[in-house]
Amino acid sequence: MSRVAKKPVALPKGVELNVQADSISAKGPKGTLSVVKPAAIEVTIEDGQAVFVTEDAALIPLTGTLRAILANMVKGVTEGFERKLELVGVGYRASMQGSDLNLALGFSHPVVFKAPEGITITTPTQTEVLVVGADKQRVGEVAAKIRGFRPPEPYKGKGVKYAGEVIIRKEAKKA
Rank of each mutant, 00 (worst) to 15 (best):
L85T: 04
F149D: 01
Q49G: 07
G31A: 05
V36K: 15
I167K: 06
N102W: 09
L33K: 01
T78H: 02
N72T: 13
G76W: 07
F52E: 03
V111F: 09
K174C: 08
Q97L: 14
E46W: 08
L11S: 00
K13E: 15
F113R: 04
P110S: 11
L33Q: 08
Y92D: 05
A39G: 05
M73C: 02
A144I: 00
F81I: 02
P38W: 05
S23K: 15
K6Y: 05
P152A: 13
G48I: 08
A58Q: 12
Q126D: 14
G64Y: 00
V15N: 01
V139T: 02
G118H: 02
R169Y: 13
G118E: 02
K161M: 07
F81V: 03
V88Q: 13
T65C: 04
P154N: 15
K6F: 10
Q20N: 11
I45T: 12
E82D: 12
T122R: 01
G48E: 07
G140K: 07
G14K: 07
K114M: 10
T122Q: 06
R147E: 12
L11M: 06
E55T: 13
V90T: 15
A143D: 03
L33W: 05
S2T: 15
K174W: 10
L85V: 01
V131I: 15
V139K: 05
T44D: 09
R93Y: 10
A94C: 11
A115M: 00
I121A: 00
D135V: 07
P8H: 07
K161H: 05
T78N: 05
K30A: 06
P29A: 14
T44G: 04
E141N: 10
Y92K: 11
P152R: 10
K174A: 12
A115E: 07
M96R: 07
E117W: 03
K170A: 13
I146N: 00
E153S: 08
L59A: 04
Q137G: 10
V53S: 12
R138N: 11
A26H: 01
E55K: 15
F81N: 03
T78Q: 09
G48N: 08
T78A: 03
V142C: 02
K114L: 01
A172Y: 14
T120M: 00
G157H: 09
V111H: 10
M1E: 08
T120R: 00
T32S: 11
R138C: 04
L11C: 05
I121M: 00
E16Q: 14
I41D: 03
R150C: 12
K170C: 13
K145C: 11
E165N: 10
K13L: 11
R169K: 13
K37V: 07
K13F: 10
S25V: 09
G133R: 02
E82G: 03
A104Q: 13
V43E: 01
K37L: 04
I41A: 05
F81M: 06
N72R: 14
V15M: 04
P8M: 00
V77L: 06
K161V: 09
E165R: 11
L70Q: 01
T123P: 06
P110I: 07
I167D: 02
V77K: 07
E153P: 08
K75S: 14
G148Q: 04
Q20C: 05
G80I: 03
F113D: 04
A163N: 09
K158Y: 14
V51E: 05
A172E: 13
R83H: 07
V19W: 03
K161W: 01
